[in-house]
């Protein structure tokens, strides 16, 4: 695996050559996207996005609302398939495998690339059933004991177990917003994904709950490749190792988070960081 180290720099496209060549993360590349475009009907939402996502690190997508960062995120686990009239072009590869290949099973793909959404969306089931749902449909547990173990360990990893261990059979919708979001993270972890996509996971939460989730993201980084969309630059700066800046459907700039925030190359990035672009 170390062989792949350093590839980040070589395959980084759209990055100005004056960018700091030393990436803080010398990690293998998990996901590569090349010239990804998205059309909603006649409207083009993304214009040729190319980016590499390193393994076991947090990559943040930032940019003003409507810039296409969420759209691109949803391409990675093919959630755009569920939107009528959406057309995706270009290639996205997970471990070298084209995820838009006709032979690829989207169900399997989504089991490997989990997702956490903007608004906490626990199912109208018990806390236990929420977490157990993924393993159940995918047949990951051979028996009840297996399932219990997966549920408990997932809740632990999401930092929720201690808070809910006495009320696993109560409805997940009864939890507080922050707890609900951690439940959703536990639900995603329970399937054992390799990549977790987070679409503005804290935008509906208060600052304290946000801090808890951010801490959690930092812990999860140990085991998972995480891509997070956020409209908060502070959040990107706090949790991510790499940052990509989107604007009007284009990927303007990407690089180590520190560089993007302290030394942006592109004028538009600079304007955004300085608060000049909404």
């Amino acid at each position: 695996m170390d062989m792949l180290a350093g590839k980040v720099k070589k395959t980084s496209l759209n990055v100005d050559s004056t960018m700091n060549p030393i990436d803080v993360l010398e990690r293998p590349i998990r996901l590569t996207a090349r010239d990804v475009t998205v059309h909603y009907g006649a409207k083009q939402a993304l214009h040729g996005i190319s980016i590499d996502i390193p393994d076991r690190a947090v990559t943040a997508f930032i940019g003003p609302s409507g810039c296409g960062k969420s759209t691109f995120l949803r391409c990675i686990n093919r959630m755009n398939d569920t939107i009528e009239g959406a057309k995706v072009g270009g290639t996205i590869k997970l471990d070298g495998e084209d995820i838009y290949a006709p032979a690829l099973d989207v169900v399997e793909l989504r089991a490997r690339i989990g997702m956490v959404f903007q608004k906490p969306n626990p199912f109208p089931k018990s806390i236990y059933d929420n977490v157990a749902y993924g393993p159940r449909i995918h047949g990951l547990a051979r028996n009840k004991a297996d399932l219990d173990e997966i549920v408990v360990s997932s809740l632990r990893k999401a930092g929720l177990f201690e808070e809910v261990k006495d009320r696993l059979q109560e409805p997940g919708t009864g939890l507080s917003g922050g707890q609900q979001q951690r439940l959703c993270i536990a639900r995603a972890i329970a399937v054992g994904p390799e990549v977790i996509l987070m679409d503005e996971p804290c935008s509906a939460l208060d600052p304290i709950a946000t801090a808890v989730i951010e801490e959690l993201i930092d812990e999860l980084r140990e085991n998972y490749t995480i891509v997070i969309v956020t409209h908060s630059m502070q959040q990107a700066a706090r949790v991510s190792q790499r940052t990509a800046f989107f604007h009007l459907g284009n990927l303007i700039e990407q690089g180590p988070t520190e560089d993007i925030f302290t030394n942006p190359v592109n004028k538009q990035t600079q304007d955004y960081i300085m608060g000049r672009i909404g």
Partner: peptide, 25 residues
Amino acid sequence: RTLRDGAYGLGATQSETIRNVLLPA
């Protein structure tokens, strides 16, 4: 829609989403 997305995001098929999430909701 977020509920459906939640199930799809876990890798549920469309019918699983409908039967297990949409209809109970």
